[in-house]
Design a binder for these strands. Structure first.
Lengths: 208, 208
DNA sequence: GTCTATAGCAGGATAGAC
DNA sequence: GTCTATCCTGCTATAGAC
């Protein structure tokens, strides 16, 4: 792996773990096994490195997650809502990355959702928004008819709220439930999100 | 207001906005209008100040939120699930604080949920856990019968996931939905959380 | 209790050898 | 491209006058 890549990988792990300000260039280069100057050589500045982490690593992973989702959906033009929600939950809670990488992804994403940096606007427009839009179009026919379009959007947000939260607030959840966060438990989580959200959106058991 | 209080208030606003590492003692004392040494005089260290912010300001607000919730519930021994969810959403999304203070509270809380500091354990045991427990006891009878206790706990987590997320990811939500985050919209949010979660928990319209 | 002054160190960034 | 050495700024914390 090139120095550039090593820095990129180390940096995103540390940024996710401790936040941008919580990490120094020396932390990164130290852990990556190269000298302090290399960050400035390759990325211009610490800020430039963060930007690159987001626009390269995060965007790449997002595209992978999205294509995994579409693979689960298959080529059905009109998939049942249960399949949509389950595919979404599985894509974001289980695969195709290591659990460490999944955490990195969600932590960085949540941080940007909460306090967007300059990079986020571009990322949002190019990567997130198109995906949200097609999800919404698939789910919208299954929602209650009478409510407004803006309120319908919230149904989608509620699903993501759970996915993000169950990925992030892991420490709190294990404290509250007393469960360990293993593969077995993640299956339970997915099952729960599907059951809860399906009823939440469609009411009843989700069948029309 | 005493210097001590001014520091405490300024500090929590800044910690919430930029995170612990993103804020310097100079930022805090500068904005609070006192000298740099005052933090060390009153709180021993920057860490001690953070600790105090959490154990005093956060705990205080949490107790207020919880007692507000109980007031909304009234003295009914067995309130209907809709009332529980609505009271919860209203307590955490609307009142009794300014919108700025509500954001402070949720940002600090989310940060601790994600990456707990030394203070959090104590806070969790004393403030959060008892509240979760009584909420669970009230909601549990309305949940599907067949599932395990640990999975039932997740129903409660799903409600909090939404409350936290709709408070925090405001920037993203306004971007996605195109809505402004005013009082009117918050009413919509509460209405949505109640509708979605009630169906999610009980299925159907929530009536037994 | 509040201030100034300063110690002592860690931060990001750069220059220049190799 | 990679390294060391170094600059300078800004950090936390403390000493000591008032």
């Amino acid at each position: 792996m090139s120095t550039r890549e090593k820095i990129l990988n180390t940096a995103e792990a540390l940024f996710a773990e401790k936040g941008y300000e919580g990490v120094s260039v020396r932390d990164i280069t130290g852990k990556a096994g190269c000298n302090v100057a290399s960050v400035n050589y390759h990325f211009g500045s610490k800020k430039g490195l963060y930007r690159e982490v987001f626009l390269v690593k995060m965007a790449e992973r997002s595209r992978k997650l999205q294509s995994l989702f579409w693979k689960k959906i298959g080529d059905s033009a009109n998939p049942p809502p249960e399949q949509i929600i389950r595919s979404l939950s599985e894509a974001f809670l289980r695969s195709p990355f290591s659990e460490k990488e999944r955490m990195i992804h969600h932590k960085l994403m949540a941080r940007e959702a909460e306090r967007p940096s300059e990079v986020f606007d571009e990322f949002h427009k190019k990567v997130l928004m198109p995906f949200f839009r097609s999800l919404f179009l698939m789910l919208e026919p299954h929602m209650p008819r009478r409510i407004k379009r803006e309120q319908k959007m919230l149904y989608l947000m509620s699903i993501f709220a759970q996915i993000i939260h169950f990925n992030l607030a892991r420490t709190m959840i294990t404290k509250v439930t007393g469960q360990t966060y293993d593969e077995r438990y993640i299956d339970d989580l997915i099952e729960h999100i599907v059951r809860f959200s399906l009823k939440g959106i469609c009411g009843g058991d989700g069948r029309k």
